[in-house]
Design a protein around this nucleic acid. Structure first.
Lengths: 109, 109
DNA sequence: CGACTGTGCAACTCTGGGGTTGCATGAGTT
DNA sequence: AACTCATGCAACCCCAGAGTTGCACAGTCG
């Protein structure tokens, strides 16, 4: 619904594809890379990599920067933290609920 | 490639859908729920919810348990922690690389 | 200028996933 | 046994997305 939730969905959709996860992995080690460079190490065409990088860009996970005639992509880990925060929130809520339930059982015993 | 990576992909794919995220949210508050119960609060059919719950089950995020004639689904937050761990790992790696780079620039100055 | 190389754009195929409807089955209830 | 209600199964539609190929365009360098 919110813009926030859509961003969240974009991040998870981006992370759902193994190729994109590998791209993120490489961009975590390497400061920046071009689509053709990344495509050399992947089993698919350059165009496919370009599309993946566009998805990652729309999720805010990667930032393109023109450098002469090539475009270098760099990692932007901020949305990653946000998404991880959402997950731990859900997990924590569950844990709290479980703790309350256990407390009630103790009291009732 | 590994089973671990496929599990990771399943979790992220599961989280990519807004309906499934809402289902997880409800299961974080409620101890357990049936497909028909959950479908009542969602704008789609029960069959759609069943399919979503199957996805969540395959991702290990939810566990079905037969109770009489109904099937109650409960949250299993463990894979959530794993996936969050992967994300923070990528982010941390990036941060370390950035710190090293900054150190080198300082030294070279 | 002309040659080379990386990007960008467009059209196209094809599979998978979200959603639907219809009906059969299975488990309690009376 | 008859009834009720949740679940399970199957066939089907539709579209987003992953991948491809082909070609045009833009910097860079001889």
């Amino acid at each position: 619904m919110n813009a926030h939730d859509r961003r969240l969905g974009a991040v998870f959709s981006a992370l759902a594809d193994p190729t994109r996860r590998r791209l993120l992995g490489r961009l975590a080690e390497q400061p920046s890379a071009t689509a053709t460079e990344l495509a050399a190490a992947e089993p698919v065409s350059r165009q496919a990599i370009v599309k993946h990088l566009q998805s990652l860009d729309e999720a805010g996970l990667v930032t393109p920067a023109r450098a002469g005639r090539e475009v270098r992509y760099a990692l932007t880990p901020a949305p990653l933290e946000d998404a991880a925060g959402w997950m731990t929130t859900v997990g924590a809520q569950w844990d709290r609920r479980l703790a309350r339930l256990r407390g009630k059982l103790e009291a009732g015993k």
